[in-house]
Every structure is written in C-alpha cells, then in structure tokens.
Design a protein around this nucleic acid. Structure first.
Lengths: 160, 160
DNA sequence: ATAACATGGATATTGTTTATCCGCTTTATA
DNA sequence: TATAAAGCGGATAAACAATATCCATGTTAT
C-alpha cells in the first residue's frame, strides 16, 4: 500500500509550469529531464493531468504543456485524484457475505464504513493544501539561490 | 494504492477466534477454509498476527491459534499494522533535492509533512474502532441466524 | 514539405502481492 | 517411543500492478 511516485512528480511538474510566463509552454521531455524521471512514462502522467484539466497541452512544433488552472486552485488532492484515479484505498472482498451466506446486496462488510471514514479523513488533509502553498514554502531562504537557477532553466527551455 | 486483502481476512479471523471457549484453539487450515482463502498463504498472515501479539499459536497435534488479547484491546489499526507493517503510505523520492542540488539530509520534500499529517488522520480513524465494536455490529438481527451457524461450526471444529 | 511536438495503443520490464512447496520443530496419543 | 497433526520459516513460483519503452498517428510553426 503505497502512493504512486507519479503524484510527487506531478506536483513538482506543476510548480515548474508555474514559472512559465503567459503563453509559454514547456515540452514534456524537458520537464521529465528536469525531474530526472522516465520521459516516455511521464508523458502518460502528463496526459492524466490534462484529462483532469489541471494542465493544458499544445501539439505541434513549439508545443508543450502549460498550466490550465492557477496553482491557488490546484489542491494536492486534485493531483492525487488525477494520477491515482477514483479507486478507493479499501474495498471489501465480501468474505463476511460468503461466510454468512448472504447476498452481496446486503452490504455486510463490517469494515467498509470505517475504512470510508478513514479515507475521507485522509483526503480532507490533502484538500486543505494547494500547490500555491507549496510554492510559498519553496521561497524559504535555504532554497533561494537554487530556485533562481531553476527559474533561469525554465526561461532557457520554454518555447513561446 | 490499495490495502492488502489480508487486513480484512485477519479481522474476520480474529472474530472467529473470539468465538472459542477458553483453552480451545482453531487450526490455521480450518480458519482459512472458513474464510474461503488460500490456506498456505493465510498461514503467513497468521504468523504476522502472532508476531504482533494479537493471537497466540500452539504447535503440535491439537494445535492451532487462539486470541492473545481480548478483542476490546485490538484496534483495527493494530491489525492493519500487523499485516501491512510500518511502511508509510507516502515516501519522498527526493526529486526536489535533486532538482535544487541539495543534500538528502536537508529534508527538502515539500509534501512530506502534509502526507504525514494525512496518514495520521487516516490512522487515527482506524485507532478509534476495535474488533469488539465490530463483534457488536455483527449481533444485528439480519445476521442472527447465520451467526449461530458460524458459532456452531466453531464448536465443531475447534480442538481443546 | 519538414521537423518537433503531443496522442494513444501495444507491449515489455520491474516490483509487489499472493500462493505454493518442502524440510523442520513441537506435542498428544497409541 | 513411533507416529500423526499441527505450526514455523525459507525458497520459490504465479498473478497482478506499476513503471517504462516503442511506434504509428495527428498537429502546427517554419
């Protein structure tokens, strides 16, 4: 039971895209190179972010990706949902139904309600924080110098 | 990202063991047969419950498993922990460290704190409920008849 | 027309979970 | 004291999910 690495990668990709000036885009390959992850696979994840309407894609030469929403409007939960999908953390395998010889419709799993509550508690924390909050944290002094290099890289790499 | 099926199986196994009179045990094979799961694999899970001190095992002929703690003292969280282990739901892959060229020791993952908080929120729900609470819910009328059959099966199958 | 990009499907690789097998120890009982 | 039935632990296989690659296609600036 472990969160996919794509969630972390996506959050940082979004932070990169946020450094773009208006109208500019960043090619998928450049992003994955900066993140240090598999380019071909990360393209698949970028697709999921597009489907979730978090980022937009521009095809053709001078194409790439850019934000579709402002980072203030992108919760960590939204990124999680885009990458991991709707699947719940727990789903009953119906053991109790089988043991008690009840029909599935009777919803006889004793754990479902609790697990749902737990998952909601978990999600609600992810809903509290936006990518903008993280961008704010990234302004800390200890990052300052390196952050400038990163912004410079974006300026160099973006296409307009 | 999905919880192992062993957690649900273990909870119901514990509920079965709770139907045993003092001194009696239930062989692992009988338990897995009742649950309708793979016997050889479920033995491994039973071992984890033993290691976690939730149940006790008795070797030799007339051996088997019985509860070590009262179900009032077994939280769903304890079962989860026994089966899934200490591994956290999220762990940083250090992407930001790499991008900003910082050392790992600088703990520069922006998500870690949030994810830890979310996981704690999740766990705290699992800590609120004990297996005894579920045993109580199982007394509902709609289960009544079948529950008696189950208890009868335990009486028939247990060894003393 | 061409080159650089995203798209989507098919497929391979890797890792984790689930499942099996076997040789071992333990213990009640014949 | 031999035996049978149980748990124990290590090695290994099978099934599944996550990660990664490849390729044919569509789009667009030059």
């Amino acid at each position: 039971m472990h969160m996919k690495t794509g969630v972390e990668q996506s959050v940082y990709a979004i932070l990169l895209l946020n450094m773009l000036p208006d109208k500019a885009v960043l090619p998928g390959e450049a992003i994955s190179q900066q993140l240090g992850v598999s380019a071909t696979y990360f393209q698949k994840l970028l697709r999921k972010l597009v489907s979730a309407d978090l980022i937009a894609s521009v095809p053709g030469i001078k194409g790439g990706f850019k934000l579709k929403k402002r980072i203030e409007e992108i919760r960590i939960y939204d990124v999680y949902l885009a990458i991991e999908g709707q699947q719940t953390l727990y789903s009953s395998s119906g053991i109790l139904c089988d043991m008690l010889e009840l029909r599935e419709e009777d919803r006889c799993c004793l754990l479902s309600d609790l697990m749902e509550e737990a998952e909601n508690a978990w999600k609600s924390v992810l809903k509290k924080k936006t990518v903008a909050d993280l961008a704010e944290e990234m302004k800390a002094e200890r990052f300052a110098g390196k952050l400038e290099s990163l912004k410079a890289w974006v300026q160099d790499t973006m296409v307009i």
